[in-house]
Design a protein around this nucleic acid. Structure first.
Lengths: 155, 155
DNA sequence: TATTGTTATACTCTATAACTATA
DNA sequence: TATAGTTATAGAGTATAACAATA
């Protein structure tokens, strides 16, 4: 009978309270949009977002150990341990017990891991270029600087 | 024996590859810092972050239904249904079946829910003011605008 | 038939605690 | 005793699918 839907109202009819004026809210929206796309990218090369991040850090820091990765990732060591085990099983990384201090295991990318990491990196750079299209010259640097300062507000 | 720790190296010794130059990476760092603090805030009034968000939207849109909330939240309706049930149990919201179309339940804050929402909002505004301290005049508006445009890159 | 909302179930990611191995 | 790393277990948050109620 009615020509147009009565409910649910479109987003434009919704009262967002002050939400849209909050940095917290906008940062969540943006990060969530980026992350959804990022997940599609890492999925396409058979990695989770966290795994891509781990492969990148291990690739750039050969011989890094788990304690150091934990401090970079805000993860518990038990959580990281599971992720590491999984990456080993899939032959993406390998670990060798250090001779100087046998408590540490030095982590390295395998050839396969290195290849996957490079594949994913190329796709992620593409994502960055898509974001650049929304920005004017110089605005990328401004955004990075502002985000860095926001992070520092919670140190 | 050694005077200084050998491992793990401090963050300053870590090679971050290109990570620090990515908007995706910086946005994740910033959002994650904000969110950790946000969780502490909502915890302190007995809410989860998602519950605070739901209470805010219901408070600003009395009579809103679950389909509409789902479209705003990027959640499955089954997930939202559980959250709504929980908020009802704790007497923070109430729902009334609509007379015009009995498939819908109109949602409202209870007095208690409204009070909690206001408490949390005051604390969240405090968080925004702490972020402002890292920014110069005008930079908040710039940041909000840039974040909005980044979100639009993935529409 | 289509839509709103619920429930059973399972999956993913995470942390806590107890553990082993090395120092 | 202290630190690196593993494992068992549990909790939070999520989605899928089957369902009931209403239109």
């Amino acid at each position: 009978m009615a020509a147009k839907k009565q409910t649910p109202p479109g987003k434009e009819l919704i009262n967002f309270a002050r939400l849209q004026d909050y940095i917290g809210y906008r940062a969540r929206q943006a990060q969530s949009a980026i992350f959804r796309d990022f997940t599609t990218i890492t999925d396409s090369v058979g990695l989770s977002p966290g795994e891509f991040s781990l492969l990148t850090l291990i690739g750039a820091n050969p011989g890094i150990n788990q304690v150091t990765l934990v401090s970079l990732h805000n993860l518990d060591k038990s959580t990281l341990s599971l992720a590491i085990r999984d990456l080993k099983r899939r032959n993406l990384i390998e670990s060798r017990r250090q001779t100087e201090d046998g408590r540490y295991f030095a982590l390295y990318l395998t050839k396969l891991g290195s290849q996957r990491q490079r594949q994913a990196t190329a796709l992620v750079e593409g994502q960055e270029r898509r974001m650049d299209k929304m920005l004017k010259p110089g605005e990328r640097e401004i955004l990075l600087d502002l985000l860095k300062r926001i992070s520092k507000a919670f140190d």
